[in-house]
Amino acid sequence: MRLYATLAGVVLSASAAHADPGRLLGDDTFAVHDGGPYILDAGLFAAQPAALPSGISTGLGAGVTRQCGCGLSYGLRASWSTESESSQTWVVTQWDMRLRGLVQLRHTAGRGILALRLGGGPTVVHEHRVRTQSERSGMTIESSSTALLPAADLEALVGLHVAGPWIAMIAVGPTVEVLDGNVRGGWIAQLTVGWQP
């Protein structure tokens, strides 16, 4: 009986909210409308480390894209991620900063966005190594170095206009970097929230 009373209360309050002119959600809240040419997005970033043989490098990514109106977009992206891995002799921490210029083929279907994104640019890798057990022995053995790797990414992007100017986007795809003269494959993934004013 108490449950039914609670449910009735919820339904009545919902009805009252619907009738309230100062409500949070309007009829056009989820409507799709054409925004400007720019989309700014930021969110979570994950990738295979640029120069470590194992692990998942996690961090943040952000970007700006300008739509040309002809199914083609271009823009800039940046991401920062870090990962620590250890062996019997080393604990290695690397952070990767990926800076990309990109072009994007875009198709809009209702609320949805499908795109293929090709990016290119440098990946800055900073490495810090600590010799295992050396801190315990009182004589820390460590080294640091930084390198710049040419890289390219190809990402498939799925976006959804959720509400107003807000877009949820997922992008996943392969990446290649040139490390010590060798081409090295990997992957990247991003889960971001876009804003299209």
């Binding site: 120069a51 440098p122 490495e127 057990q133 053995i141 170095s145 930084t146 390198a147 790797l149």
Partner: peptide, 24 residues
């Protein structure tokens, strides 16, 4: 790090490779 970004490619990444220095 910033200087490295500007100069482009300065250090050599070792990862887990390279000589293992003894603890003593």
């Amino acid at each position: 790090v910033l200087a490295c970004i500007v100069i482009a490619g300065c250090g050599k990444l070792q990862g887990f490779s390279g000589d293992v220095p003894p603890l003593a």
